[in-house]
């Protein structure tokens, strides 16, 4: 069992919780290799995917996870809106609550929306990404992938490269890495760094090349400039030159260094095609891990015990 009712931020989980999620996900990962991938574990439970932002990858991953556990999964797409334009988040929460669902996965454009949901409904709430704040299941699947590929988490040096300021992935991954004894380094131009990175507990470097030889993992963030009114970098070309992962950089990295990316990738910007398709890239392993980790989260929150996991 987890020590928390909801997973709103990665800080809801203790280090033991994180270990339990990863271990449980290990057994679900085996299930996902079978020809028949379905378990009866969550039969009769209702899981709602409440997505206020368009998302195909994350939603599909949660949806598959729910189906593999035999839960009844429902997709509820809505648009984030002020009162004048539609139903408030509180009313949506109360509406879902009245339908007696057991677990709600929420993706929202604004930070804090999962907290708000958790306050006004009985169901378990899992944050599927809120604004530029957090995306805890992404961090868990990233830890899972690192552990599977490199055999450990303790002491790993993980460079998180790119638009950290606007990345909910980084928002969860940094504290998650700290929880398991790894060492996160934020790398990118200063205009893409959060105002107070030390609050997250991470080191900062403005030069990828300087820290590259130290890294066990290069975690390349998607560069999302459409969020910005005034471009925080001179050009995509310059960004790729200074911070993109390419074959030349791979040569200067540790031979066992892996390259990760939360997707969707901008090939030629933060990651070259050559790297993306190389054996050093574990991008598809991350996607694969996503289903197992989300199964583990659903299973553990809804009160399953570990004996039923791989039954």
């Amino acid at each position: 069992m987890l020590s928390c009712k909801h997973i709103l931020t990665i800080d809801d989980l203790t280090p033991d919780d994180v270990a339990l999620v990863l271990d449980t996900a290990d057994s679900f990962a085996e299930v996902n290799e079978r020809r028949i991938k379905k378990l009866p574990t969550l039969r009769g439970r209702t899981i709602v995917n409440l997505f206020f932002e368009p998302s195909t990858r994350t939603r599909t991953s949660f949806e598959i996870a729910a189906k593999r556990l035999s839960a009844d999964g429902v997709n509820f797409s809505a648009s984030a809106s002020a009162t004048a334009k539609g139903e408030s988040l509180r009313d949506t929460a109360k509406t879902l609550s009245a339908m007696s669902c057991d677990l709600v996965v929420v993706r929202h454009k604004y930070a804090g929306a999962p907290q708000m949901l958790a306050e006004c409904m009985d169901a378990h709430v899992v944050n599927g990404g809120d604004g530029i704040h957090q995306h805890p299941t992404q961090a868990l699947l990233d830890l899972f992938t690192m552990r599977r590929t490199l055999g450990r988490l303790q002491g790993l040096v993980v460079g998180i490269v790119g638009d950290v300021a606007h990345s909910r992935v980084a928002g969860s991954l940094v504290p998650a890495l700290r929880k398991v004894g790894a060492r996160p380094i934020l790398i990118g131009p200063k205009t893409l760094m959060p105002p107070r990175p030390e609050v997250l507990g991470a080191e900062v470097s403005y030069s990828l090349d300087e820290v590259l030889p130290e890294l066990d993992v290069a975690y390349m963030l998607r560069v999302q400039f459409e969020r910005e009114a005034a471009m925080p970098i001179p050009s995509v070309r310059e960004y790729a030159r200074l911070y993109g992962m390419n074959a030349a950089r791979l040569v200067r990295a540790k031979p066992e260094m892996i390259v990760m990316h939360p997707g969707p990738m901008n090939r030629g910007v933060e990651i070259s095609s050559e790297v993306a398709d190389s054996p050093r890239s574990v991008v598809l392993d991350q996607v694969n891990a996503g289903v197992a980790v989300r199964m583990a989260v659903m299973y553990l929150l809804l009160g399953g015990d570990s004996s039923g996991a791989a039954a």
């Binding site: 930070a111 804090g112 809120d130 959060p194 107070r196 609050v199 997250l200």
Partner: peptide, 23 residues
């Protein structure tokens, strides 16, 4: 052009809560 609609002070709290800040 500096505040850009930030909801809270730019700094520790904006970083922790993932809210846009104004310096």
């Amino acid at each position: 052009s500096l505040s850009r609609g930030g909801s809270v002070n730019e700094g520790v709290v904006s970083t922790r809560l993932g809210l846009p800040g104004q310096p």
